[in-house]
Design a protein around this nucleic acid. Structure first.
Lengths: 131, 131
DNA sequence: GTAGGAGTTGGAGCGCGCTCCAGGTCAACC
DNA sequence: GGTTGACCTGGAGCGCGCTCCAACTCCTAC
């Protein structure tokens, strides 16, 4: 299966601008072109783009994704270093989750507190009175 | 207890520039000033700044923090709306944690895969050979 | 009274990750 | 062969959250 840039955008959830941007900065290898010079994405391209979006979702900076992409391009010999990058990043993600969970507790505490206040003094905001 | 801006920066982990920036954009009420016109932060100011940094850590956008701050400034009558903001944001944080956890699984899978590859083909990166 | 250091202001600059735009090419359809 | 629409390129612009700067004031210590 092959895909136009618009189709690739739809399937990956990225914008066509972002797809071209990722190519420009070296996150993806330039895809094939048709006779008219238009990009043609393969399934493998989309799989890679999907993985990239996962990395982005975790907050990996573009610069690190680029390093990973370039190692990948250099082939199997870089597998060790690539694994190392992912292991490091995984630690960051875990730390980030822990951080968010700690903040969640603070939010819970604050919200409980508002519940107390609102039970004592209800009707503070008229438009909220029945909520 | 009172604090100079440098002390407040040290205690909150924010920079002095960020403290002034937060004041400028309305995240914090202007603190007291000493006879020479210098900012004097109170413990209450620091407590509020600490809470703000927690909100920032969770990824709450500044614009939302500002809305919260302005409601707070308007007093108890806005408690309902403030609670609502926090409840909405808590949902976002939970969703974000879930997203990160899903990505973690993908990272785990990828890393396991690299382990397999590396066991099959070790010594790919000489400098990594003993790791 | 003078040097130094911390603080002040308003405003410019920056790094990130896109996002948008103008001006052009190309293929398909009527 | 003319119109339409998707795509192309290079480059500018943007929103966010700071961060840095110059030029100035003020207090302290010597």
């Amino acid at each position: 299966m092959t895909y136009s840039i618009a189709q690739a955008a739809e399937r990956t959830g990225l914008s066509v601008d972002t797809l071209r941007y990722y190519e420009r900065i070296g996150l993806v290898e330039p895809p094939a072109r048709d006779s008219g010079g238009r990009r043609v994405y393969s399934d493998a391209d989309l799989t890679w783009l999907d993985f990239l979006t996962k990395l982005r979702l975790t907050g990996m900076p573009i610069r690190m994704m680029r390093e990973y992409a370039q190692l990948r391009h250099r082939g199997e010999a870089t597998a060790g270093r690539r694994k190392q990058l992912l292991v490091e990043h995984r630690a960051d993600v875990r730390a980030r989750i822990a951080e968010l969970q700690a903040c969640l507790e603070i939010l819970d505490y604050k919200i409980d507190n508002y519940d107390l206040i609102l039970r004592r003094q209800p009707g503070g905001a008229p438009e909220e009175a029945t909520a």
